[in-house]
Amino acid sequence: MFHNEGKALLVQRTETDDGVYKIGQIENPTVCGYRGKTRMPFSSSAGIFAVSGSINTATLEMDVVLEVYGMNLGSLHGYANRPFKIDLDLSMVKGSVGLRLTGLDELLLDIDTKVFQVADDGSGKFIEYKKAHFIQDIPDVRCAPWLSPSSDN
Rank of each mutant, 00 (worst) to 15 (best):
Y34D: 05
T38N: 05
G70T: 14
A80K: 01
T102F: 01
N81G: 04
T30F: 02
L66R: 07
E5K: 15
L88A: 03
M40C: 10
I138L: 11
G78Q: 02
R35T: 12
E27H: 05
G36S: 09
G70A: 14
R142C: 06
R35E: 15
P29F: 04
S44T: 14
S75H: 11
M1E: 15
F42E: 04
K131E: 15
M40V: 10
F116M: 06
D110A: 09
R82Q: 10
L104W: 11
C143P: 12
K85G: 12
V64T: 07
G98D: 04
T59P: 04
K114N: 14
S91Y: 09
V93D: 02
V93F: 00
E67F: 02
L147M: 11
N4D: 07
T14Q: 15
Y69W: 11
D140T: 05
L90W: 02
V20L: 12
G24W: 03
L88I: 02
H3L: 13
E106K: 08
E5I: 13
A58K: 13
T113L: 02
V65P: 03
L99S: 00
G53E: 03
N153K: 15
I23H: 07
I55P: 01
D105T: 13
G24L: 04
L104Q: 08
D110Y: 06
T14S: 14
D105Q: 14
T102C: 04
K114G: 05
P149Y: 12
N72R: 05
F84Q: 04
Q25W: 05
S151A: 10
E5H: 13
V141I: 11
L109I: 01
E128M: 13
V115S: 00
V64S: 03
R100H: 15
R39G: 06
R100W: 10
I48E: 07
R82D: 07
S91Q: 14
G24D: 10
K125D: 13
K94N: 03
L88T: 01
D120R: 07
N28I: 06
K37W: 01
P41F: 08
F126I: 10
S150F: 06
K94T: 06
L76Y: 00
I135D: 00
T102P: 03
G19W: 08
N72H: 03
F84G: 03
S45E: 13
D110F: 02
E67P: 01
L73D: 06
I127N: 13
V115F: 00
P145Y: 06
T30Y: 01
D137T: 01
L60M: 10
S54K: 04
G19N: 09
